[in-house]
Design a protein around this nucleic acid. Sequence first.
DNA 1: TACGCGATCGTG
DNA 2: ACGATCGCGTAT
Length: 187
Amino acid sequence: MKLKTSFFLEKPALRLAKDLLGKVLVYESEKGIIRGIISETEAYTQEDESCHAFGGKRTKRTETMFKRSGYLYVYFTYGMYHCINIVSGKEGIGEAVLIRSVIPFDEKSKQIMINNRGKEKDISNGPGKLAIAYGFNISHDKLDLLDSYSKVYIEDHNIVLRKISKTKRIGISKAKDLEWRFIAEEF
DNA sequence: TACGCGATCGTG
DNA sequence: ACGATCGCGTAT
């Protein structure tokens, strides 16, 4: 079932980061429907130095993070990769959850991902990789996952998680010690 | 207008 | 361990 407003509404980043594990990120792409089980996330809040919206910093890029929960925040990094986030918290507060890894939900999704990636291994186990696997880019920024006509949304398939671990975040230079990275280890 | 650097990835 | 590659943010 498609997750609606009540799942996202005003949910803080740390909570949403955990709740998204085991849920399914769906994109009705032109090449077919792509489903992936979210297996790794990271939380970013405006009190957090490594967050793009640290201290309430609103720029053209970060503006999306200040929307209400449930919007897609897409940014371009390292001159070649896109990263996908889901906005959390209340409108006017800059925070989001980075989707770091997904597991293809079914064979058809996997084939589309492989096709988009141009290889068979390690197709969606990293934020830049999964963006390529789905075909997401900056044009997908500011999509509203709660809009009933949206081609991007989250589904609940009642996947049971046996083990969730919490670690330090990756690839950042500030606020390194916060354990705001969440990984679904066993399903 | 100029410049330093990054919520990454693939190769070596 | 390191280079690719370029938009963003901050400073000039």
